[in-house]
Every structure is written in structure tokens, then in C-alpha cells.
Amino acid sequence: MATVSVTDISKTYPNGAQAVHPASFDIADGELIVLVGPSGCGKSTLLRMVAGLEDITTGDLHIGARLVNNLDPAERDIAMVFQNYALYPHMSVAKNMAYGLKNRGASKEQIVAKVDEAAEMLSLTALLDRRPSQLSGGQRQRVAMGRAIVRDPALFLFDEPLSNLDAKLRHQMRVEIRNLQRRLNVTAMYVTHDQVEAMTMADRIFVLNAGRIEQIGTPSEIYRKPASTFVASFMGAPPMNLLSAQSVGGQVQIGGVALGLSCADGDVTVGIRPEQVAVTQGGTIPFKLTLVEELGASRLLHGTVAGQDFVVNAPNDDAALADDLMLDFAPDALHLFDAQTGQRL
């Protein structure tokens, strides 16, 4: 258990690519933070710097009270779970879990006790003598978790640990990892490109884009007050609708219809989540319907507003739909972004 404190940390690879721009943040004891962002945005690089698997180009990294910049991974009191699990293929499940302890000079009894305890926790007891090749994907994932748990680390690091699992297992493991982390009360950093994973697991989410942290916040903050168009469109499924609009005379309008929002004159981007749009006869905004996607409880209406692509997530009332509908936006559900920088206004 430990806090993590990061000050102006950045990474430039030897080939000159700057994968992480200077970033600072703190992680509280026992907190689970999720680093989320599209592929190549620098999530793994950031995590691997914390793990000690990449050199830190600039900045300071504290785990607990210790400055760990120049410590070996093994000395940082961390554990890591990899996307491909990285189990030692020639060792049994028990040996896989024991290897780190053995290297730290733990006694035989200690090792056995630890491994048994972790195996118990992860329902791996019956599999302890198997090789990784004799396990299913989900079981391998558990062994990787077990290997991390036995070390009693101050900090758990996960790099897309569920990406190699099928959808159902992924959901199950998501819950399991979250429970485990709570129960052990270990600080954790969790990397994923899956925004659902981020929303469901995180105490706080760090949204990364092109090597920069775009926003840090709780899942609900990220959802309700995205700091930029990038965050708005990355988090949430289906993503937030983003419409180019103009502010004329202090009033924001789309296709000549005022939205009941005010801001300085000029181009702006208006965002609204598909699930916060109402389809009503009394609506003020015309919507041209082109395609209906049935989701069961609700349905997605694809079409255009003022010539721009737009999606509505409407309750499924089985009503037949005309091609031309009217929409109603609640003003407090609208988000305003600078048209140039994409920053929230």
C-alpha cells in the first residue's frame, strides 16, 4: 500500500519519439486509477516508466516516500500483469507464482503459504501443478494475477490484462479484479483502451491523447464534464454527438435554431450524448432518419441534424418511425467546446 506521486514525468524514446509529454499527478493510497486512450497514446509507456521497465527521461517518480527513478523493477515493490500474461511456459502454476518470492529469498514455508493463499483466492488450487499451456485463457489470466498478488506489492500495475479474453470472461474478470483490489486495498494503475472497462473499474480515470493527459476525473466527472471534444467522443458508447454550431448575438444556434445557450460570438462545437436526446413532436430540431439499430431495450437512430451525422439513443417503444423527426435537447445536457482547440468552454 502506498501513494504514488509523479512530477513532470516525460518519455522520449532513443529514436526521438516523444511518447509522454511532461505529466504530474498523485495517486492516493488504495486508489485504482485507469489510464485510458486510443492505441499508441502512451499509456503503456507511462505505466512501464512507473514499473521501471523504461527509463524516465525527465521528472520524478515517488512510490510511497521513496524516489524510485533509478531503482530496478524488482526494487520498486510493484507487481505487473501483462496483456499476454508473460507466464513462464516451462514452470508449473505454483512455480510461476513462487519465482519472485524465491528470488527475494523467502523461505520455503513462506512461499508455500503465500502461493496457497493466492491460489485459494483465485480458485487456482486444483491447477497448481499444471503448465500454462494446459490452462484456458481465463485461468492464465488468474495465474498472472496470482503471481502479482503473492508479492504483496505496494502498487499493482495492469497493462491491458483483459484484452486477450472473450467478452463474457472479460466482464467477469473485470468485476473480480475490482473486488480483489478492494479487498487487498492495494493502490493500482490499470491501462486499457476500452472505455467501458475504464468507466466500470476506476476510482479515477486518466484520459490520454497523443502523449498528454487530457483529463483526470472520476468516471462520472469524465462522463458529465468532458474536458475536451476528444474526451467527449472517446468516453461513452455510442460516443457523444458533436455538432459544429455558431454563436450569433450571444446565442448558440444550429441550422438557425437557437439552443438556449449563450456564449461569445463565433464558431463553437456543441456536444450532446445520444441518450440525452428526446424524440418528440414538440421538438425544435429537425432530424433526418437514415437507419435504425435495434438494441433490445433501446434503439439507435442514425441520421443527420443540419446536415451533420447524429445518433439518438431512444427507448424502444416499437413505434413506427417517420423519416423526418423532431428532437429536443435539454440545455443542461449540452456541452460547449471551442471549435478550434476542442477545449470545454
Binding site: A51, L53, M80, L87, N103
Partner: peptide, 22 residues
């Protein structure tokens, strides 16, 4: 796989140990 040496380093294996054990 790259991750094998990374996992081993986190497990406290230096170059000699990694070579012989893994």
C-alpha cells in the same frame, strides 16, 4: 515474447538468473 524478460525483471531476476532460470 518481450514481456517474459520484463516479468522476470519484476520478479527480481538479473541477467544471469533470467538466462539460467528462464
Amino acid at each position: 515474447p518481450e514481456e517474459l524478460v520484463e516479468a522476470a525483471r519484476i520478479d527480481g531476476a538479473g541477467p544471469g538468473k533470467f538466462f539460467i532460470d528462464i
